[in-house]
Simulated assay, not measured.
Amino acid sequence: MYKPIPIKRSDRYGSSFWDGYSYKLQRNVHFFGDLKYDHWILVETDPNILKYCERPNSEKLQQNNLHKAFDMWQLERNGKETFLNIRYKNQSDTNHERLEKWCTKLGYDYKVLYEEDIRGQALYLKNMKWLLPYIGQRKPPIETDKRHILRALGDQNKTIGELQSICSTIPISRIRENIYFLIYSGELIATNIKEVELGIATEVKRIG
């Protein structure tokens, strides 16, 4: 498995240094640059991505002199592994062909993501930034609350506001923590998360 190449705030002047916590990985993550941080938000909150590693390093990568070549490696539920680089449009990427060829040879996908790929859906990104602090280092939500909410939801689509009314015996803060965690874990889909701000108007449904 891969381990991140360590970085410190003092390693690079003039770039934003971001320090976050990944509930998915159960460890701290660090990034230089706002775009890489925004990309991490999308990866961390994507239930289809099981694992990832920023600035991946391994013996295999070192042997091929690729231990500083990629910004991230990620593993999806279907077993697909992808190496990624994050770029602004004005950044040159002379190694693209070489990296893609190496990944293809070993059965990996290779992607270069640009600003529009990451920030193109601004409201969705904003919602994920709002959702993530509810996850962070907190423990999973109370199981009895979860069962109550899922029973109230049933097989229908309901807004968070409707669920708050139905589950009025549970404090609103706990209802939201449960729902946000279920969205994060992939047990619920927020059907209009790209159209409305995360809150009482957000509509959720069960998977399947």
Rank of each mutant, 00 (worst) to 15 (best):
I170G: 00
G199C: 06
R138E: 11
R151D: 11
Y2G: 01
F181G: 00
S15Q: 13
R174H: 05
K126R: 11
E115G: 00
Y37S: 09
I175Y: 06
K194L: 11
T82R: 14
F31Y: 14
Y184N: 00
R9L: 14
I142F: 07
N85H: 06
N65A: 11
D71Q: 11
K101Y: 12
S173C: 03
D11N: 12
Y108H: 10
N65C: 08
E195M: 15
F83Y: 15
D71E: 14
K139S: 11
I86R: 00
L84D: 08
N48D: 00
L182N: 00
F17G: 02
F70Y: 15
N127P: 00
P133T: 15
N192G: 08
P133A: 13
F181W: 15
Y2R: 02
L42M: 15
A201H: 09
R9A: 13
R87F: 12
Y13T: 05
W130I: 10
R27H: 04
K105I: 14
A201G: 01
W130N: 06
Y2P: 01
S16Y: 08
R9Y: 08
L198G: 03
R9V: 11
Q74W: 11
I193P: 01
L188R: 05
S165H: 13
R119F: 07
Q74L: 15
L106K: 15
G20F: 06
D109L: 15
Q137I: 13
T104M: 04
F32Q: 06
N65T: 03
G161W: 09
T45W: 07
E187G: 03
D46G: 02
Y2D: 01
G136N: 14
T202H: 06
N90E: 09
D109T: 12
Y88V: 00
E44K: 08
R87Q: 12
E143Q: 14
N90V: 07
E162T: 09
P6E: 06
H30L: 13
E197F: 13
R98I: 08
K205A: 13
K80C: 12
E100D: 06
D19T: 03
S173P: 00
Q137W: 06
I142C: 02
C53E: 10
H67K: 11
E116N: 03
D71N: 13
I172S: 12
I86C: 04
D19P: 00
K89Q: 02
Y13V: 09
K126M: 10
T202K: 03
E76K: 12
N28C: 05
Y37I: 01
V29S: 12
D117Y: 10
R12L: 15
